[in-house]
Write a protein that binds this DNA or RNA. Structure first.
Length: 495
RNA sequence: GGGUUGGUAGCUCAACGGUAGAGCAGCGUCCUUUUAAGUCGUUGGUUCCGGGUUCGAAUCCCGGCCAACCCA
């Protein structure tokens, strides 16, 4: 090289580039195509037979995250999907040249290593390295080993770094995968078909939310990104798929907060010849399996309230208006069909310190009481039933009181986890409900869905579960961003 | 959209308006069972960006960017 010699010792990127250059000059491949691996880290730890040092050989691979250099030997740790594993590299064992090369490795490099397991003096199961290979050179330094990465922006924008150095993040986000896998298994066991339906829709229905719009060039038309899965899945009920579910991304063009990400994951499940009570059983089955497969207990500690949430006991059932009356301190619900209702509801809400917007419908005022004063207090699993019909236009009306609907809202830890309905299958009632909604929110009506209903949809129970919120609940996360690998951020930002 | 807080070395953080520092990482040395390993030495800065006030600004003021929290 004819490079002017210069001090690059302060520039970690430059130091590593130099090492990379030297490796290539020496004929090594710093970015190999593969690496044989017989055990993940946790599997290797399990494979060790107590008292039988140096008898079980393993081939492992991972990223160097700890290096403790003691001159002629060093203890290092690699990180793989299952966690960390200690390796012991000795000059005598690997040979002089290989040892010298090992000393040039950096934190963050990815290596493969093989050798037998043994227990170190301090009792840690360790691989005594006979051979090792650098399989991927890391050209950038890792964040600090002790404090990890704390800068929120960097955690979200460079999640891979967060996953490497922050163990809680790695575990929490893996927990999410297990939660989803457990739910899939529960539903498969109950003969539900998993399906995929369009993200691009001509009409964004199934919920009240502002959609994102996009444009299809070849078709020369605008599309909406779906805001719910409901209307497509119900068409499948019409088509004779009696038990279907989809776990899919939906998009709502609304605010961002600790509980809202513009794109989030919904489970929606529909079961023909069932109803909202059948969905109660199903939801409890989902939680029973989650307790067994993921949590490993039937209860969790709820950080926000300090309470222990018990999933194994009886789940409380409560009528919406009983809870409202309780919060209001008088029988507000008795006035539902009287001209005084709005005034009394407003009075009750204001007495509870709530701000009421003059443009709100009466049911919105009442629901403000529910959302602000009741929901947050429902920590133990609670099915709230007999909701007013204005809240969900896709549910069956209650036989005894057509102002109410056959639904539940399952609330756990003060958070709405799952709404479920006895699904509306009367095309006339459905059209009427849509027309009211269209009047209010200027949404387009999904007339093709109404056509499908006219072909006959079997009675069915349906349920939606916000997967992200479920993960917040089960992992004790503080924000939805902590259970989404790559939460929505403004593009650009740092670097 | 409004309010509050924050942005300083690769990372974690200091620095009353008066010479920008520490730990880890890096670089160089010692050490063949370490556990945030230890040891001796040492490099490294567009203090987020742009203006302003001041003899002097990381610090005070204004504007912008990005993020977090609270509110709507």
């Amino acid at each position: 090289m004819s490079d002017i010699p210069q001090d690059i010792s302060h520039d970690q990127h430059a130091v590593r580039l130099k090492k990379l250059h030297d490796l290539r000059a020496a004929g090594a491949d710093p970015f190999r195509a593969n690496c044989e691996q017989t055990h993940f880290s946790a599997e290797a730890l399990k494979a060790y037979v107590d008292g039988q040092d140096y008898t079980v050989p393993v081939k492992v691979a991972g990223r160097l995250v700890v290096i403790r250099d003691m001159g002629k030997s060093q203890f290092v740790k690699i990180l793989d999907q299952q966690g960390q594993l200690q390796l012991y590299v000795k000059k005598d064992q690997v040979g002089e040249a290989a040892y010298a090369a090992f000393k040039k490795l950096d934190l963050g490099d990815i290596i493969g290593a093989e050798g037998p397991l043994f227990k170190s003096q301090s009792g840690e199961i360790t691989v005594r390295v006979d051979k090792y290979t650098l399989v991927s050179k890391a050209l950038r330094p890792l964040p600090e080993k002790w404090h990890g990465l704390t800068d929120r922006e960097q955690i979200y924008r460079q999640r891979y770094l967060d996953l490497i150095v922050n163990e809680e993040s790695r575990k929490r986000l893996m927990q999410r995968s297990r939660i989803v896998a457990s739910i899939r298994a529960t539903l498969a066991n109950r003969k539900f078909l998993e399906v995929e339906t369009p993200v691009l829709e001509g009409v964004a229905g199934g919920a009240a939310a502002r959609p994102f719009t996009t444009h299809h060039n070849a078709l020369g038309t605008d599309f909406f990104l779906r805001i719910a899965l409901e209307l497509r899945l119900k068409r499948l009920l019409v088509g004779g798929y009696d038990r279907v579910f989809e776990i899919g991304r939906v998009f709502r063009n609304e605010g961002v907060s600790t509980k809202h990400n513009p794109e989030f994951t919904m489970l929606e499940v529909y079961q023909a010849y069932s109803d909202f009570r059948g969905m109660m059983d199903l939801l409890r089955a989902v939680f029973a399996d989650l307790c067994r497969d993921v949590i490993g207990a039937t209860e969790i500690k709820h950080a926000a309230s300090g309470q222990v949430i018990n999933f194994a006991g009886e789940w409380r059932e409560a009528r919406y208006f009983d809870l409202i009356d309780e919060a209001a301190g008088f029988k507000l619900s008795a006035l539902r069909h009287t001209p005084d209702y709005r005034a009394k509801a407003t009075e009750a809400a204001q007495k509870l310190g709530l701000e009421i917007h003059p443009g709100w419908e009466t049911h919105e005022i009442v629901n403000e009481i529910f959302g602000k004063k009741i929901e947050p207090t429902l920590i133990q699993p609670t099915f709230v039933t007999h909701l007013p019909k204005e809240l969900c236009p896709l549910a069956k009306l209650n036989a005894e009181d057509p102002g109410l609907i056959d639904v539940f809202e399952c609330i756990i830890g003060g958070m709405e986890v799952a709404p479920a309905y006895s699904e509306q299958n009367d095309p006339f009632v459905q059209r009427e409900m849509f027309e009211q909604q269209v009047g209010e929110d200027q949404q387009k009506m999904d007339t093709d869905f109404l056509l499908a209903l006219e072909h006959g949809m079997p009675p069915a129970g349906g349920m939606g579960v916000g997967i992200d919120r479920l993960c917040i609940l089960l992992t004790g996360a503080e924000s939805i961003r902590d259970v989404i690998l790559f939460p929505s951020l403004r593009p650009g930002g740092s670097s």
